[in-house]
Design a protein around this nucleic acid. Structure first.
Lengths: 270, 270
DNA sequence: TACCCTCTCC
DNA sequence: GGAGAGGGTA
């Protein structure tokens, strides 16, 4: 026999969080789902985070949403929600961009609940998603001091990867104090795009900034850089951080203090 | 030898009607053609109407265009035009949305004529379509007093059917005085969308109205509700009428007094 | 499943 | 005219 109190406990949520704008989490999923099929969403007092290698174990995705970025955030005990990203994408397609989104997980940990509310509150949608058991190899990411850090408009990043991808499979990225250069060498010919740091910073969407410790010149798979470009809607700018013989970090920040989505990709040997 | 007089008679049309906006009939066809392959267009003094079951005999389509909704309407004798809807769609693709459209049927009843004229009248297109013999089982639709009638934006209807269709095959529609709820239960989880009657009716495209005689709770095939959603471009709002153990009626009205497109779908047994 | 193309809406 | 969504194809 289950007591009244136990029943009440059963309907208390171990984890509950609300975002004002469903569009944020929708965009995050669009930026991850082509790379990763299943992932653990780790909920703790600090916030919501996800870390996963892509299915071919070539690149790594790391997402963090800080607790203070939520309209409401309660986490009684750290919990990992194993989620199939295709299923979650289906559910998020049912949320309007301006809906608020509430995420809940109960004690049993076998399902997650999503509630979408329209701004006018005359529409309320609720979804339950069955959870999976995913053994995640939580890779430690060394906190490197990179030799070269380039900030550029994310639309420019997307454009360059898409354009150069037409001509070849790999891109050589060379960063000097004066410029960052993307070069491709393919069957039909060669191509390159060179950006110079912007002297006058009129619009934030046109900034190019270079911080250099030491010049770098490395080669990467364009295919993966293109996967990372799916995150462009999340931020006006993207930051590329490079060090010789070290994985490239591609970072998209969500507004101020909200969190970030970072991708890592090992260089190719020339 | 055919006399001059007989030739003149042969060019007299038993039925002739003109609509100012070809877009209306184009949209109607888009809303029917995925459900029905061939249908009789019944012309009478009252107007133009069509009634047909879909090819799997699961749902019923009923369309009425009142004579007074036409710019010109002449019908000397009731006539049924058996038309292949795929062929008619091809012809209607040749009409501009703002063209006027004239439909004619002669005595012999073996073909229909379509004339499209641009507003400036500097373009005139004529098409002839061979007619078919279609034996239509003209089902009487009982004029029911429904237990629950819900009016909602047709875009909302389309969105809900499309969203929930991703998660399962059937939807449970529950109407109470306070709300209408659409629920789906599928392999990856559950989902529901709940609409509340709008207190402030600012825009006609955001209205939710519920007239209730008695609460209802019924189950329907989402696939067919999605077919019906193709009619959304015809009207800002859609009206769902439900009664226990009775087919659901989904109605789209064309402006004031022009006519309507109604779909009927039998409920599933729980 | 991912990319491309088309179509529609803004 | 541009961007986003949906559908079709590879």
């Amino acid at each position: 026999m289950v007591s009244k109190e136990e029943q009440n406990l059963a309907t208390t949520f171990q984890f509950e969080a609300r975002l004002t704008q469903a569009s944020l989490i929708k965009k995050i999923l669009e930026a991850i789902k082509d790379l990763v099929t299943d992932a653990n969403f780790d909920c703790s007092a600090e916030g919501l985070s996800l870390q996963a290698m892509d299915s071919s174990h070539v690149s790594l995705v790391s997402m963090v949403l800080h607790a203070q970025g939520f309209e409401m955030f309660r986490c009684q005990r750290a919990v990992s929600l194993g989620i199939n990203l295709a299923s979650l994408t289906k559910i998020l397609k049912c949320a309007g961009n301006d809906d608020s989104i509430t995420l809940r997980a109960d004690d049993k940990g076998d399902k997650a609940e999503f509630v979408f509310e329209s701004q006018t509150q005359d529409r309320l949608s609720e979804f339950e998603l069955k959870l999976m058991d995913i053994d995640s190899e939580h890779l430690g990411i060394p906190d490197t001091k990179y030799s070269a850090v380039v900030e550029m408009p994310s639309s420019e990043y997307r454009r360059i990867c898409s354009d150069l991808g037409v001509m070849g499979d790999t891109v050589r990225i060379s960063v000097s104090k004066e410029s960052v250069k993307f070069q491709v060498d393919g069957d039909i010919g060669k191509g390159s795009v060179c950006l110079h740091p912007s002297s006058v910073v009129d619009k934030p969407t046109e900034v190019v900034k270079i911080s250099l410790e030491e010049p770098v010149d490395m080669i990467f798979s364009i295919r993966y850089l293109n996967f990372f470009a799916k995150a462009a809607p999340l931020s006006d700018t993207v930051t590329l951080s490079l060090s010789k013989d070290f994985p490239l970090q591609v970072e998209f920040k969500f507004g101020e203090q909200m969190g970030y989505l970072r991708y890592y990709l090992a260089p190719k040997i020339d």
